[in-house]
Computed example of a mutant assay.
Amino acid sequence: MAQRLVSFGTDGTVFNRGTPRHPAKLPVPATPAALPLLVMEGIRKEGRRGEGQALAWLDLQVMRGEMVTLLGPAGAGKSVALDLVAGFLEPDGGRLLIKGEKQAGVPTWRRDIGLVSGTPDLFPEMTVLANAAFALEARGVARAEREERAGAMLERLGVPPSLSAERPAGLPLPIAMRVALARALVHEPALLLLDDPLGALAGEEREALAADLARLHRALGLTVLHATRDAALALALSDRVAVLEGGTLRQAGTPRDLYERPADPLVAALTGPCNRLGGRVVSMEDGLCRVRLDCGPTVEGLPVTGPEGSPRPGGRCLLVIRPEAVAVAPLSAEEMGEDALPARLVENRFAGGHLRLRLEVGEGGELLAHRPPDLALPAVGEDAALAWALAAARVYPA
């Protein structure tokens, strides 16, 4: 797209001339330990009768002090993976190690883990303090020590000491989840498993607990395997994200790597809002892919080799671009710059930190753009021009 355009009144839209650099894949962050704490190697698990494989093949490592999130829709295999690590299920194939030790046949209670699921699952007959201290009691820690350690962990998680003698039944859900986290952490497990504990929370309570999880991860050096279907949460909390769909690992990498360089259109969609425009490859030259979109315009993007192969001249393709990468101006395409596209603004909605713009492109094509609220824009129903940096457009075989 328009390589002559230089910042139409935005902070980040600066289009450079020339062939873009292809960013190298980012490595796994360096950690003090040479060996991963958790290894899942070729893990397979059959689903229930008639439902195929819950996990087709999973290779994943989690380093000490790292938070890795399994991200995917319902039925992707996230909870199955956590249940296998916890020992609630046994794999049908592959190898699972914690701290370098094989876990085949090791019962849950002997694994060096802490676990919090989507519900607090507190013991109703125990007090808040007794719930938090349960793992220590099970390990034979003396009462005075376990109550002191449990009280300190509850306080660290923001549970008021005045609730220590209360029963769980009367606790608000956000407080109950914090008690469950204290119970999972009090014995200092090597690995913390989180099966979407924030899924039932909303608003400020959700944001506060997410912030506390991030703080504890850093302060205590926690090693965490987390599962969620919330892309924004996964990208914000994690050192690395592994995208699962249909029991298959689609891509794993840093949040920025997955967001900016998704391996395929599905990963792009699962990691955040994106435009996916169908078309046909016209030509490929000098590392660029020229595409005639189904709605009419001809544009350029970077060809991507992924699980489905590479785009080829004459072949069907999808051009994927994030909404925030689309620049919109109240100008003609000629005035905006070389290769800018004519469009018409059909919707403008305020979405907090940005405006959500829906634009009509060509014949029946639509494009979503996110722009800052203070920019000059056409009125709804008026003509507009749009463009994007070449490096922001990725072309995948369809």
Rank of each mutant, 00 (worst) to 15 (best):
R4W: 13
V6A: 04
T13S: 11
F15R: 11
P20W: 04
P20R: 00
H22Y: 13
H22K: 14
P27C: 09
A30L: 10
T31Y: 04
T31I: 05
L35Q: 15
M40W: 08
G42H: 06
E46V: 12
R49D: 01
L55E: 03
W57K: 14
D59C: 08
Q61N: 10
G65F: 08
E66S: 04
V68L: 09
T69W: 11
T69V: 09
L70G: 04
G72W: 10
A74K: 11
S79G: 02
L84E: 09
E90V: 11
L96F: 02
L97V: 12
L97Y: 09
Q103L: 10
A104F: 11
A104Q: 13
I113H: 03
G114K: 00
S117P: 05
T119R: 11
T119C: 07
D121H: 13
L122K: 05
F123S: 09
E125M: 10
M126G: 10
V128S: 08
N131E: 02
A132S: 05
R146D: 05
R149K: 04
A152E: 06
V159Y: 06
P160H: 01
P161W: 02
P161A: 00
S162H: 14
R167P: 14
P168I: 03
L171S: 02
L171P: 07
P172N: 01
P172D: 02
P174I: 02
M177E: 13
A180V: 09
L193K: 10
L194C: 13
G199E: 07
G199K: 10
E204G: 06
E205P: 05
R206I: 02
R206S: 10
A208M: 15
L209D: 13
L216D: 03
H217C: 05
G221N: 08
G221K: 01
H226D: 03
D230G: 02
A234Q: 05
E245N: 14
G247A: 08
D257S: 15
Y259P: 01
A263G: 15
P265M: 00
N275S: 09
L277H: 04
G279A: 06
V281Y: 03
V282C: 13
V282A: 15
S283I: 07
D286H: 15
V291P: 15
V299E: 00
E300D: 07
L302Q: 08
E308S: 12
P311S: 01
G314P: 06
R316S: 11
C317A: 00
C317K: 01
A327K: 10
V328Y: 07
E338V: 12
L341P: 05
P342C: 05
A343W: 11
L345S: 08
N348I: 08
L355W: 05
L357Q: 06
V361T: 02
R371H: 10
L375T: 14
A376H: 14
E382W: 08
A385E: 07
A387F: 12
A389F: 10
R394Q: 15
Y396P: 14
A398Q: 13
